[in-house]
């Protein structure tokens, strides 16, 4: 489990540039699926099983992309200005390190400012890659970088960049490896460009035309001081009721809760006031589909050091495998 998450988090893959992470995942799942394919948006799609009587066509999505930085301007002294690709928070930038897709590394810092209590906008930050001039600079306008932060094994908990959503990708990979008997046609989609608005999931949902959609992603937690939200690290996977962009189908929520109870998997209900997942794209695809999301609680989301609890991950794996292996009954309360 940890090894897989470690491997996946360390591969750079900002939105729109997911080829390296996609090829890694494709190699890992190859022995377990009949075939894999990559669509025009770069989504990796793997089908497992076929639809038996009473079965459904289920789309399960986890996104491969991570938030990143994109070069917008290079100063005469070789300092690199950048913009964000996805929800990069300025407060996590100064003093951090990045790695470009061409392997160049650099450190981030900001213009001098007098009001130290205020956080500067992204436009006032730059990456110093050690170049002495603009000419000498090995990166160009439009080049992409991601946070450079190694995987940290803290025992029960782990920390890394890109746990959002590589832990969801790992969860999906391990589910593919475990689901042996299912009455469903399972369409596992490793999506692109979630961080910039679920663009991969939008087109994947349209082409696959499934009966049910489930997104696997991380959710922020409320166990840090000052946040009023009842999802805690280490208390089990979170079943999404709603976030800013998506109200999960109540019948899907009930099905997940019922299954979690039957499997005796600890779980939490998630009501989130920031962000959304690929489930929002699935819900309004074509004539619409019942959709929901299973979340792994995560501290410090969108920072270079996100943190999850491995027990939450293990419970999510048990729950997801159970959900996809049995007959699905969607009933409202």
């Amino acid at each position: 489990m940890k090894e897989l998450i470690k491997q996946l988090t360390q591969i750079p893959g900002p939105s729109g540039y997911e080829s390296a992470i996609r090829e890694t995942i494709r190699e890992i799942i190859k022995p377990y699926v009949r075939e894999t394919r990559v669509d025009a948006m770069g989504n990796l799609i793997a089908q497992v099983g076929t639809k038996a009587p009473g079965g459904m066509r289920v789309m399960v999505a986890a996104h491969m992309d991570e938030i990143g930085l994109i070069v917008s301007h290079i100063e005469k002294k070789g300092l690199v200005r950048f913009s964000n690709l996805g929800g990069v928070l300025p407060r996590y930038l100064a003093g951090g390190r990045v790695v470009f897709l061409n392997g160049t590394r650099g450190v981030i810092n900001s213009d001098r400012h007098d009001e130290v209590s205020k956080i500067q906008p992204i436009s006032q930050f730059f990456i110093d890659i050690g170049a002495i001039s603009e000419k000498d600079c090995p990166v160009k306008i439009g080049d992409l970088a991601v946070f450079d932060r190694e995987f940290l094994d803290l025992g029960k908990r782990v920390s890394s960049k890109a746990l959002d959503d590589r832990c969801g990708c790992a969860l999906m990979i391990e589910t593919i490896q475990r689901v042996k008997q299912s009455p469903h046609e399972l369409l596992f989609v490793f999506c692109t460009q979630e961080e910039v608005g679920s663009r991969g999931a939008t087109t994947a949902a349209y082409q696959l035309d499934a009966d049910l959609g489930i997104a696997l992603d991380v959710t922020p937690v409320g166990d840090i001081l000052g946040v009023k939200m009842q999802v805690n690290l280490g208390e089990g996977p979170a079943i999404k009721v709603r976030d800013v962009g998506h109200i999960a189908d109540p019948a899907v929520v009930n099905w997940m809760v019922r299954t979690a109870r039957e499997l005796k998997v600890p779980h939490q209900l998630e009501v989130l006031d920031v962000g959304s997942t690929d489930a929002r794209a699935m819900q309004i695809s074509r004539g619409g589909m019942p959709s929901g999301a299973l979340s792994i609680p995560c501290r410090y989301v969108h920072s270079p050091s996100e943190m999850i609890d491995m027990d939450d991950y293990a419970h999510a794996l048990t729950l997801l495998t159970g959900l996809l292996s049995r007959e699905i009954k969607l009933e409202k309360k």
């Binding site: 962009g245 998506h246 109200i247 929002r280 819900q283 309004i284 074509r286 004539g287 619409g288």
Partner: peptide
């Protein structure tokens, strides 16, 4: 349904 959050019903009914 769900106009108040993101016009879910208008998207899907018009398509159907």
């Amino acid at each position: 349904v769900q106009e108040e959050v993101r016009t879910v019903g208008a998207h899907t009914s018009t398509f159907e």
